[in-house]
Design a protein around this nucleic acid. Sequence first.
DNA 1: TATACGTGGAT
DNA 2: TATCCAAGTAT
Length: 312
Amino acid sequence: MNQQVRELHTSITGWFAVHARKLPWREPDCTAWGVLVSEIMLQQTPVVRVLPVWQEWMHRWPSPAALASESSGEAVRAWGRLGYPRRALRLHAAAAAITEDFGGEVPSTHAALLSLPGVGDYTAAAVAAFAFGRRETVVDTNIRRVHARAVTGNALPSPALTAAEMRLARELMPDGVSESVAWNAAVMELGALICTARNPKCSQCPVLEQCAWVSAGRPDPHYVPKGQAWAGTDRQVRGAMMAVLRNAQAPVQRALLLHPPVNLVPSPAAGELDPLAALHRLAAPQEQMERALAGLIADRLAAEDARGVSLP
DNA sequence: TATACGTGGAT
DNA sequence: TATCCAAGTAT
């Protein structure tokens, strides 16, 4: 633990003490369940979109047992438009596992958390650290980017998490337990608010003077990020079908999903098209429509019986 | 290790 | 307008 690292600790945690956002899952009275739900919802999803859904979930399902007592379909419906609805399914399954295998209490160790559906290495570390005050090496995309710039001198972290990054993250962690928790939260927040992927606000950065990337003249990334294809993909069709099922009050005929009729119904309130009309407008090949629906059912995001297709 | 997996705001 | 990107996980 050299002097440079100590300066990073002081500067970044000092900045966090002043500039941290006030978020409900950071409040002292927030339960471990609340933290777990927030971490799952925040996977690949911005804070502003998570906030209202998280509040609704906490009010409706204040404990794992409460969520586990309802059908997985209710979880998927309440997931709304957060995206990656399989997360709702896994969170529901995690609630059941917590209720059955952990006496209804969210486990506190990394290993036990990792056993839960939808909980990977990042989420296990984050919950252990932020809900239980443990010393964990938390590594998310924000932390990776701050490390890449401030310490390594690169514009962006590598496309996939490397062993070298994990080693660096462990080396940078303060020894003290409470200090390590604050450090993890602070670096993540710095990456989210200041050291952003595009247009970083370097003028407001607490470690501008120590930043290896700035010192090197802010060189460009040494690789080209691979774009996320969307138009014409199965994902787009799946998303449109999920919107139809979320919107439906009753099971939807399979044929209606596979052959959505031209039925433009503008919603007077929101000015949005009916989800079925939106699905039609994709004009996806029939083979793709069938593949998407089969995928949803295979993934248990949708269920089919004699009445039609609905949320599980 | 590479790929699939939603959604919408920002640029 | 098209692309980028967001507190990743599972396979």
